[in-house]
């Protein structure tokens, strides 16, 4: 079972407009709601590939119940701790005229020390049933920045591999505990550890720095559908060459899901990267957030190109 942790999930409200005008009246012609948050998106992609997954974290209020019910309908097992405040909502404005997506993200509810204690208790239990845990996304108010570091240590004590995919201080602190795979979420700042990830050379530097800090595998996204993957001994460049990407929201989470699935199926690094990139592409080709079958992923593999830097001087 692949476990995911989403400490700050969302109920995403997707509003479709035809030509968004700021500071103006805009008519919404279609509305959808869906459970979101990075870990939840990973669970959805894992389940779409036919693998068992369990989603943990905090939910609250009616929005939280809606999130749980949607996940269970998809066949995802849940074990959320119910907090006193309401789960946050994300507004995604999908402009069908320009093809642009605008995301308005709420900060999230406050979590108490008692909530944290009860979450840790659930995490500890679930670890015994899991082969890999993915820790991803932002933190709600009241959650210490060391939380991912603590959870990585707990998982390691249980002999369970971890994937860390978040940003800021919680990423740096988590990295100190040496997760198996680490991928910084650079959507907001486009940088990691003072390195601006604007070109291949810098993405490689960032990936190597993550490996030096102790992750066995580092994944750094360079730009749309291009990634650098580093281990202690190997360096890979991966990209997808499909000409028309529809929706990049959730593609990064599908990439992480792909790594999780492939790593737990004993694939080698090249196959793992290919499968993960195919998952990301399958997600990016759908207007809805996630693909719905492993066949979709397999079809996308022909658009994936991976290249190993045979000699690191090559870069």
């Amino acid at each position: 079972m692949i476990a995911t942790v989403t400490l700050n999930p969302t109920l995403d409200v997707i509003l479709e407009v035809n030509g968004l005008k700021l500071n103006h009246y805009n008519k919404v012609y279609n509305t959808q709601t869906t459970a979101g948050g990075k870990g939840i998106n990973v669970s959805k992609a894992v389940r779409a590939c036919g693998r068992e997954t369990i989603a943990l974290g905090f939910v609250g209020g009616n929005r939280g119940i809606t999130v749980e019910e949607e996940l269970r309908r998809l066949g995802i097992t849940t074990n959320f701790w119910h907090i006193g405040e309401n789960t946050r909502s994300n507004i995604i404005i999908r402009d069908t005229k320009s093809g642009e997506h605008t995301l308005l993200s709420e900060p999230g509810p406050r979590v108490t020390e008692y909530d944290l204690k009860m979450f840790h208790s659930a995490f500890y239990r679930v670890i015994s049933q899991s082969c890999l845990v993915i820790l991803s996304g932002s933190l709600p108010l009241g959650v210490p920045e060391e939380i991912y570091a603590y959870l990585i240590a707990t998982a390691q004590e249980g002999g369970v591999k971890t994937i860390l995919n978040t940003s800021g201080v919680q990423f740096s602190k988590g990295l100190e505990r040496k997760p198996f795979l680490a991928s910084p979420d650079i959507r907001e700042t486009n940088q990691f550890g003072g390195i601006l990830i604007d070109r291949e050379k810098n993405a490689i530097k960032a990936a190597e720095k993550i490996v030096q800090k102790g992750a066995e595998i580092a994944v750094v996204s360079l730009e749309e559908q291009k990634d650098i993957i580093a281990t202690r001994d190997e360096l890979w460049f991966a990209e997808t060459t499909y000409p028309k990407i529809v929706n990049l929201i959730g593609a990064g989470d599908a990439l992480i899901a792909g790594f999780a699935i492939a790593l737990t199926e004993g694939k080698n690094l090249k196959e793992t990267i290919e499968f993960a990139m195919a998952c990301a592409l399958a997600s990016a080709l759908r207007e809805e957030e996630e693909f719905s079958s492993r066949e979709e992923v397999e079809k996308c593999r022909r658009w994936v190109k991976v290249k190993k830097y045979e000699n690191r001087m090559e870069r």
Binding site: I54, E68, L71, R72, G75, I76, T77, T78, N79, Y114, M118, S121, A122, R125, V126
Partner: peptide
């Protein structure tokens, strides 16, 4: 089945059960 594994550990306190 409902795919939810909300449960309590045997050594948890009664006050925690009531919260759950």
């Amino acid at each position: 089945m409902i795919r939810d594994v909300t449960s309590i550990m045997n050594d948890c306190k009664l006050v925690d059960l009531i919260q759950i």
